[in-house]
Write a protein that binds this DNA or RNA. Structure first.
Lengths: 190, 190
DNA sequence: TATATACTTGAGTGATCACTCAAGAAAGAA
DNA sequence: TTCTTTCTTGAGTGATCACTCAAGTATATA
């Protein structure tokens, strides 16, 4: 008996994610979202409940996509190859609305206000860090890098460098490709 | 004949800077500023003209202080020593309201909206990058590091790593001291 | 076709945004 | 003391914020 929605929910979340990713939480108004999603206020709140609820869905989709990207790179290039390919991938990805990491931007913006979404973003960052540690561990098991380093320490440094690269890459005239190459090459010397 | 203001202008800018630095542009309302600066709307606009004008003054004061900090470190530890000491300094500085760089936060938040303050912040970032390149050049002249690298390339990478460190250092449970130490140590191997 | 169950619409809510301005208070010069 | 100039005050501006809800519309089942 019911009537079906005229939209694709996952597609709406993806479009909202791109907008939040680029413009941030405060920088994206309900009016912006209504325009981009072609949704009137009533439909928006019936579908998602609140701006924050949609933002959380967007964060989760971002994290899932990021994990999938890393898994695909591992499948294509192996654990060390994935870690070396990721820096270039994130700054060259034309489908992305921004170079900087949405998790880091969210955490930076909302953490000082004690907003729950900041903790949520930080949790995703931590899970990504663990994923990096897994890959460093696998690279050691395959004798691609020395076993002299703690995989978690390598992941801590790698993620930090990656966040720095992705922020720097937003700047006009910044040679992000050079920094990405250096990060990748430094992994070969481990 | 005139009446003097009852406040210290530089002190007001410093307090506004700390608030903008921690909470960002959109995250800091006029009401917040009026409370912290003990200024009614009329006095605020008579003194600074607009929220954006005060933000720019805050950015400039931040940049001047940053340059002074770097100069002091150079005086104390020499060019290479300053570059090695800075990572630890920025994450341990108890006077700072945040670990992350205010210039980077400003650029990240306002750049997608084409806000003039984003360009202003990026200009300061570029000048800091040049200052880093100067120090790398001096370190080469003093035979502290090899002359095989381009100082500007070293500065490009160093600044990116520093931005990453400072963002990571905002996260709870992140071992920023370890990453800061690794950045410093990597400079000894140049 | 009739009915039940959604989904869609858009005007409207109070709160907060950055900002204005006219009136009053204070302090140095005469 | 008086006058002039500036600073201080705080109610008030229109715009925008996230969000609500009652009324209208479309669709799958019976």
């Amino acid at each position: 008996m019911p009537r079906k929605p005229s939209y694709d929910r996952e597609d709406l979340i993806r479009r909202a994610r791109d907008m939040f990713w680029k413009q941030g939480w405060a920088g994206t108004s309900l009016k912006n979202l209504e325009t981009t999603l072609h949704l009137k206020p009533g439909s928006f709140y019936a579908a998602f409940g609140s701006k924050d609820a949609l933002y959380q869905l967007a964060l989760d989709q971002y994290a899932v996509d990021g994990a999938a990207t890393l898994a695909a790179l591992e499948h294509a290039h192996g654990p060390l190859g994935a870690l070396q390919a990721l820096p270039r991938h994130v700054i060259e990805n034309k489908a992305a609305p921004a170079r900087a990491c949405m998790l880091a931007k969210t955490f930076l913006e909302l953490s000082p206000h004690g907003h729950p979404l900041a903790d949520h973003a930080n949790g995703h960052l931590t899970r990504m860090e663990h994923r990096f540690a897994d890959l460093f561990g696998k690279a050691q098991a395959q004798n691609q890098i020395s076993i002299g380093h703690d995989p978690h320490g390598l992941a801590r440094r790698y993620q930090s460098d990656l966040l720095g690269l992705r922020i720097s890459a937003e700047r006009p005239d910044y040679d992000a490709a050079a920094t990405a190459l250096e990060i990748a090459q430094s992994l070969s010397r481990l």
